[in-house]
């Protein structure tokens, strides 16, 4: 069986014929070659695959591409504007919020959702907001620092409170 899935990815309209068992993360990586989104555990434990679907952070390894039909998906590649890094990406760079980098895309997508909901989080709130993301280098200290730094640099528009 094959099905047609139409959605918007990073602002671009995409329509593809797929086998229904195609996971959203595989659709993004293998069909669209958006390999910034990583697959860690395949069971929604690790958070490396976090993307936004209609503005909400979700784990794309436990979502069928078919379930994203008709939605707007944002991946790590969709965060920059006109070649400028998103403030959270910039803060991960400046604060060295990564070691091997495998968890980074998911960490950043979760952090963007966290800051949308709560533009000025405390350190404890940041740590709590990252409970769905695992860094096997255990580089949490700088990740938290990066998100706190980003929270002071977010333009008003992207820091707009929402319930993601």
């Amino acid at each position: 069986m094959s099905i047609t899935v139409s959605l918007q990815v990073n602002g671009r309209n995409v329509s593809e014929t797929l086998e229904p068992q195609t996971l959203l993360v595989d659709f993004l990586r293998n069909h669209l070659r958006l390999t910034g989104t990583h697959v860690g555990c395949d069971t929604s434990q690790c958070g490396a695959c976090v993307v936004h679907v209609d503005g909400l952070a979700v784990k794309s390894c436990t979502l069928l591409a078919a379930q994203a039909h008709g939605t707007q998906v944002t991946t790590i590649e969709g965060l920059e504007t006109e070649g400028r890094l998103h403030p959270v990406q910039e803060a991960f760079r400046s604060e060295h919020g990564l070691q091997c980098g495998f968890c980074t895309p998911g960490m950043i997508m979760s952090a963007v959702a966290l800051l949308r909901r709560n533009p000025t989080p405390t350190e404890a709130q940041v740590r709590e907001g990252l409970e769905g993301n695992i860094c096997r280098c255990t580089g949490y200290h700088n990740i938290v620092k990066a998100i706190l730094t980003a929270s002071t640099h977010m333009p008003a528009q992207s820091a707009q409170a929402s319930r993601s």
Partner: peptide
């Protein structure tokens, strides 16, 4: 229940 990303779905 799980993590907020999972509760979103």
């Amino acid at each position: 229940v799980a993590h907020f990303q999972i509760r979103n779905k």
